[in-house]
């Protein structure tokens, strides 16, 4: 295990009276995939927004490369090499691949005030960056991003972050809206990013996807780290049980079965509905 690039110590965040994050301590290391698991509302989104500079923690420290830092905003975090890729890739459906790849940092040619956007160069670099990640179906940089599949869009966004020097890659449920094959694409790209020495934070609630790429797992329950373990230390069932809030799935299933046996095969009904 290498030295962590990002170190979270005792991070707490509350919105008014609601404590969303409680005492979170995590290490994020280069060349590793940290899988952040948790049910809806467990605080995953708040944690990544804290990491990417959107929120400031109420207490606790974030260290980057051993020095304590405070992000002034999302721009600051991304300037320091923390890139966040959201569920739908954060790309522009009606722009070409080359143009959307270089948003804000357009390559130009020409001189003085007559600089023009270098479409050819932009397309070449963008297509090459994506192809280096193994997406060989993309070969024309003039294609519109909206014409790509969900997996290809994610790949494009990840390739873009890596191309512009991201050191920490935060992937917010990249596989949630994807089919099996597309998800596999994205997982392969996560592996490639890891191989290139990036620290990857992979947020998901699909245990299968997490197990496929993760080196290090953290399960969040109600804003606290309920479990922090490394690859191979827990089985899939154990992780699923943890995510479901500590109660084992088997117990839940047994409860439902038992109920149905005593109620003529009817599933449990909501209290209001049965009254």
């Amino acid at each position: 295990m290498s030295t962590p690039i990002l170190k979270l110590r005792n991070i707490c965040k509350s919105f008014g009276p609601i404590d969303v994050l409680q005492d979170i301590s995590l290490d994020i290391c280069p060349g590793e995939v940290l899988c952040l698991l948790g049910d809806n509302g467990a605080g995953k989104s708040t944690l990544i927004k804290t990491l990417s500079g959107v929120y400031r923690p109420n207490s606790g420290t974030i260290e980057m490369d051993g020095r304590p830092i405070e992000f002034t905003g999302p721009r600051d975090a991304s300037n320091r090499g923390i890139a966040t890729v959201h569920q739908f890739g954060g790309t522009f459906p009606l722009m070409s691949i080359g143009r959307s790849f270089f948003i804000g940092v357009e390559p130009t040619k020409g001189w003085g005030p007559f600089k023009i956007f270098d479409r050819k160069k932009a397309n070449e670099i963008a297509v090459k960056a994506v192809r280096d990640f193994g997406i060989t179906r993309i070969e024309d940089g003039d294609r519109l991003v909206g014409g790509l599949s969900g997996g290809e869009r994610q790949s494009l966004a990840i390739a873009r972050a890596v191309h512009f020097g991201a050191k920490v890659l935060i992937l917010d449920e990249p596989t949630a809206a994807l089919g099996v094959k597309q998800a596999t694409h994205v997982l392969r790209i996560v592996n490639e990013a890891k191989r290139r020495g990036l620290a990857v934070v992979f947020i998901t609630h699909q245990v299968m996807h997490a197990m496929a790429v993760g080196d290090h797992f953290a399960v969040l329950i109600r804003g606290a780290v309920a479990a922090d373990f490394r690859k191979g230390e827990k089985t899939r069932e154990e992780i699923t049980d943890l995510m479901a809030g500590g109660e084992t799935m088997a117990e839940l299933e047994a409860q439902i079965d038992g109920y149905m046996a005593t109620h003529d095969g009817h599933a449990p009904q909501h209290a209001g509905a049965s009254a």
Binding site: G90, L94, R99
Partner: peptide
Amino acid sequence: NWIFAMGGDKISARN
């Protein structure tokens, strides 16, 4: 390019 990006997705463009 910036104008097109703004119309496509303002938050991503700002980021």
